[in-house]
Simulated assay, not measured.
Amino acid sequence: MKTSPKHLLLLALTALIWGGAFVAQSVGNDYLGPLTFNGVRSLIGGVVLLPLITAFGRISGNAGRQPAPGEKKKLWTGGVLCGVILAVASTLQQWGLQYASVGKAGFITAMYIVLVPVLGIFIKRSPGAKVWAAVALALGGLYLLCWSGGAALGMGDALLLGCSGLFSLHILVIDHFSPLADGVKLSCIQFFTAGIVCGVPALLFEKPAWGQIAAAWAPVLYAGVLSCGVAYTLQVVAQKHVEPTLASLVLSLESVFSVLAGWLVLGQALTARELVGCALMFCAIVLAQLPGKKSRETAEQNR
């Protein structure tokens, strides 16, 4: 596959938007509870994707085509399952941002890139030595980034690690269902599902007022329209023209952009120790995505 510089830039823009979303989420915590924020942003993301279903259908020539019964079942099963996992993962992340800086949250969340191949053990996809080396690097980075001399991880760090684990599961579920159903429709269903899963308990326990939601319009719209709607669309368009491994490497810049956004917008600076931890984790992220010997041989054969 010949990689287009234009599509690499689109993926970099996607990573930039997702990195900036950590700032929006952090600011959103000043106005709304975690469940309310995620419920509103997810519903907005679903609404934004509705017109894109028609647009992508016309581009692919499938506009108006009715899915087969089996395809429809897989679409809804995958969309709802992804939505439930996304709702829990994003809520843990939102809670974690109440205790951790934007940059730290970005890097700990990015651990999913290392955890995905490790979780692959349970579906008979054994990781190689390269992945275990990446895990060791990531653990070293986490130690420098999170440990402050206490006996255990802080509350925010633990929540973000749980979020990262769930995002790893989310990726594996998407990996299973995306070849079986339309990607934009699947994402649209997952956002509406996440909105309902977060919205119902938000109404029961956080009891949000319209005034609070209106006051948080900027971070909510950024997270809903740009992070969910626009960034997802850019990813879908660009990844069709970029090698998967290269695409993952570019998207992993999300963690770097989160540090820069936290520093520029919120004035959140990391200590020298935390910066070294970030560097180790970024090296782990890159190492985990580099193709192994078999992958390179397969790529050469397919050219």
Rank of each mutant, 00 (worst) to 15 (best):
T3G: 07
S4P: 07
L8T: 14
T14R: 06
A15S: 12
A15Y: 10
L16H: 05
G19R: 00
G19Q: 01
G19D: 00
V23Y: 02
V27L: 06
G28T: 06
N29H: 15
G33Y: 04
P34S: 00
F37S: 09
V40E: 13
V40L: 11
V40I: 13
S42E: 01
L43S: 08
I44D: 07
V47I: 12
V48T: 01
L52N: 08
G57N: 12
G57A: 14
R58T: 08
G61H: 02
G61W: 08
A63E: 11
Q66L: 15
L75M: 11
G78Q: 05
L81D: 02
V84D: 06
S90H: 09
L92H: 10
Q94Y: 05
W95N: 14
L97E: 04
L97P: 06
Q98R: 09
Q98Y: 05
Y112F: 14
I113G: 03
V114L: 02
L115D: 03
G120F: 05
G120K: 04
G120S: 14
F122V: 03
I123T: 03
K124F: 04
R125F: 00
S126L: 15
P127F: 04
A129V: 10
L145F: 06
W147E: 15
G150C: 02
A152M: 08
G154Y: 00
M155K: 12
L159P: 09
L161H: 05
S164Q: 12
F167W: 14
S168F: 12
S168P: 03
H170Q: 13
F177I: 08
S178R: 14
P179A: 15
P179S: 09
G183K: 11
G183D: 14
G183Q: 10
K185W: 11
K185R: 15
C188K: 13
Q190G: 02
F191G: 03
T193K: 02
A194T: 09
I196M: 09
I196P: 06
V197Q: 02
G199H: 01
V200T: 11
P201T: 00
L203M: 11
L203D: 05
L203I: 12
Q212H: 13
I213M: 13
I213N: 06
A214K: 07
A214N: 10
A215S: 10
L221T: 13
A223I: 15
A223H: 09
V225E: 01
C228Q: 15
V230Q: 08
T233G: 02
T233S: 09
Q235G: 00
A238W: 02
A238E: 01
K240H: 15
V242L: 07
L246E: 15
S248T: 12
L249Y: 03
V250C: 13
L253T: 02
S255M: 06
L260G: 01
G262W: 04
L266W: 13
T271C: 14
L275K: 12
L275D: 12
C278M: 07
M281N: 13
M281I: 15
C283P: 02
A284W: 13
A288R: 11
L290Q: 04
L290T: 10
P291E: 01
G292I: 02
R296S: 06
E297L: 08
R303I: 05
